[in-house]
Nucleic acid binder design. Sequence first.
DNA 1: CATTCGTGGCC
DNA 2: TGGCCAAGAAT
Length: 294
Amino acid sequence: MTQVWLDEVAHWFAAHRRDLPWRGEPRDPWGVLVSEVMLQQTPVARVLPAYRAWLQRWPTAPDLANDSPGEAVRMWDRLGYPRRALRLHGAAVAVTHRHDGRVPERYEDLVALPGVGDYTASAVLAFAYRHRIPVLDTNVRRVIARVTAGEAAPGTATVARAERQHLGESLPAAPEDAADLSEALMEFGALVCTARSPDCGGCPVAAHCLWLELGRPASETPLPRQAPFAGSDRQVRGVLMAALRDASEPLPLESLAGLWPDGRQSRRALRSLAEDGLLVIERDVASLPGREAH
DNA sequence: CATTCGTGGCC
DNA sequence: TGGCCAAGAAT
């Protein structure tokens, strides 16, 4: 049973849909998976050039699986969260070996892939395979929270289950229409009903929005502040990974540790990167993981 | 359930 | 100017 405000979103989408490269016809499931992993916590504008370069070098999952995880990490460049590159490579290997090189079309098989959680699995099923399945990312959850609950921001995981249920009942019965609406909700949240400055003036759902009717009240429980990046282990890891990406030969641990003033912190970062599989330490040098590395 | 995990642009 | 934020996943 689709609702009026969802129809408005669908109509809005028909006129404002962006022609993003991963939306090309025919849909390429591997391309969709690559885009979804790159888009995890990373803005579309920064993903666009990386996505094109990536698929030009490795058009299919077997292409990527045949190269080394270290090359994936190097190609990832400065997209951030380089463990995603490692996981994407692992997903390519799994797809190649367990699924004959094809991205699986079952939820259980998708979530079993490294780097693929509930959101990404659902997104691949809906956007690539056009299944009728709720796709709940932060955009969609924010839109639902505002329109139906009058809340500024999405709530807990418990709330998310209710939203999935609600959306599952509200999606159109026809899978293709349901997939379109899922895409529309995300696009709408990304372009109109944004987190920081929603365009309620030009919003096609304004007449149906409980949050707007209540006067756009601020969230009762503001999200915890993001930990400062400057001086963090994350920054140190970033410095070390940048050096390894730029190097064609293994780098001495001593020179790597010297890239950060606090020796204890740089050694800790080095160790955590090795635990993550983002680098390999042999004797007194470190390098990106080769083909035989896990 | 709370934390950790990069990077760079924006108001 | 610097805190805030951007299509999450794993632990």
